[in-house]
Structures are given as structure tokens and as C-alpha cells.
Computed example of a mutant assay.
Amino acid sequence: MYTTLISASDLAQHIDDPDWVLVDCRHDLVNLTAGRAAYAAGHLPHALFADMETELAGPKRGEDGVFRGRHPLPDKDAFVSTLRRWGVGDTTQVVAYDAHGGMYAARLWWLLRWIGHEASAVLDGGLPAWQALGHPLSNDPPEPRAAGGIAARAPFVPTVTVAEVLENIESAKRTVIDARAADRFRGENETIDPVGGHIPGARNRFFKDNLQGDGRFKAPEQLREEFGAVISDPKDAIMQCGSGVTACHNLLALEVAGMPGAALYPGSWSEWCSDPGRPVATGDR
């Protein structure tokens, strides 16, 4: 069972396994059709496509009309239905990949852990690592699969609400880590959300700092050293980003480092900054 990362060479040995489901998670936050177009142009053999906006996220507004962020968590039953349609069962090994160092694939990895499915991994290095070994891509649609029987179980991962993050500003009991690029964290060059800045008291750990130059994750001991410089106990840490997607990359890196237990704030900055009553900080701290 693979529960964090899988190498391209290991995946190649299982690419035709009937109880493995491979999912292409490529996406673009600005061009929402780019991921599907890239998938159509060529994907790993047997891979399905996951739509970030409709399958890996839920409605942006709740039943009360309140904005929940750009990528709120999907309804759990709806997500399970998607997995069953993909042919995922309780013992299925799911492998997520993208072409962005795991930026989007980590979201599916985390969601599977959120419904208690342990056999979930990200292709280390993504599509470029697969191609670097000379493995082919396919233009063929995936073969029809029988519906899977996966059921939601107790989650392996915790979450926090916006109210809990707001309360934490006063108590400072937990360390908030923001996965966005440093300039966006400081409130500079914000082009996605309407307000620049960060949650007061948060610290910055750009998700791309989890990667080596070739797009694969750094070694566990290096990640452990780097994260140890910003958090003392992952169980007292909250991971967030712009919309709850790249924060999952930091959560995956923590698992690789052997530092489990951090929580995800799903709404992240996009939810936080939608209410002018919530405080905003700028600069490095």
C-alpha cells in the first residue's frame, strides 16, 4: 500500500493492475478548462480526470448564502459518489498526479484521507517524472469500470473552521502556516483574491519549497528539518493557503517527513478575506 508518494518506476509496475485507480488532477486556477484540455492531449494510461472545481471542491456558497472560499470541501456523500463512479472500492489503491509538482494532486490525496481511505498516494514528480523514464502517454478514454463500493470512514485528518482560526488569533495556541508564495503572503501582487495579505500571526511556508529542482519531493529528513524550523508540534499546526488546495501539499510534505497531525483550514485566505470584519496583516509577519 502507498500512503504518501509513489515513484514513477514503482507506478509503472502497477499501471495495469485492475484494483488501482489513477487520477489526473491537472488544473489551472485562472484557465479552468486547461486541465481537461491537457488530459485530452495526453495522459497516463488508464487515468481518469478529476475536475478541481466540481469534483474536488463543493459550492462556493453554503445554503445560508455565505461565501465559503474558492474551493470549499465537497459534500462528503457527493465525493464518495464520485469515487464510486471512478470504480474505487475500500481496498483500491488510488494514485493522483498532475504536472505541477503535486500542487493539485495533493488535494485528492488529502480528500481521500478525509474520508478514511488510506491507500492514497501522489505520483512523485508527476507527469514529467513519468515521461522522463520514457513511459508513454495515452489519448484513449479510460476503460469502463464497474462501480466501486467505497464507504466513508472516520477521517485520518482534522479540519478547523474560520471561527476556530479567528479565536486562535487571540489564544495563539496553534501555529498557522500559509502555503502561498511569499509576495502574496506579504500582500503584494495579489491577482486571485480581492484582498492582499495574510491571517495575523500566520507564518509562511511556500509549498514549492517542499520540492527538489526536478519537481520531486525533498527527502524526509530535509523536510523534517525545514518544517521543524516553523512548527514545534504538527498537532498544534493549521495549514492554509489561498483556497485550501496547496495547503494540502504542505500536509503531504509533513506526512512524508513523519510529522502527521496538522489540520487543514479549508476556506483559507479566500474565505478569510471575504469578510471585512476579519483582521488582515501585511508584510513578513
Rank of each mutant, 00 (worst) to 15 (best):
T3F: 05
A8W: 07
V23M: 05
A34R: 12
G35T: 01
A41M: 07
A41Q: 11
L44S: 04
P45G: 10
H46Q: 13
L48Q: 12
T54I: 06
E55F: 07
L56P: 01
A57M: 08
R61Y: 10
E63C: 02
K76A: 15
A78V: 13
A78R: 13
T82G: 12
T82F: 15
G102F: 10
G102E: 11
W109Q: 04
W110F: 07
L111P: 07
W114S: 09
I115W: 02
G116Y: 00
H117G: 01
V122P: 05
D124R: 09
D124Y: 10
P128H: 13
L133W: 02
G134W: 04
P136Y: 09
S138F: 04
R145A: 14
R145F: 12
I150R: 04
A152T: 02
A154R: 14
A154E: 15
F156A: 14
T159I: 15
V162D: 13
A163T: 13
N168H: 09
N168D: 13
I169G: 10
A182K: 08
A182R: 12
R184A: 01
R184S: 01
G187Y: 05
N189A: 11
G201N: 06
L211Q: 04
Q212R: 15
F217S: 08
P220H: 11
M239Y: 02
Q240C: 07
A247R: 04
A247N: 04
C248K: 09
L251C: 04
A257S: 11
G261A: 05
A262D: 08
W269I: 07
E271P: 08
W272A: 03
S274A: 15
V280T: 06
R285Q: 11
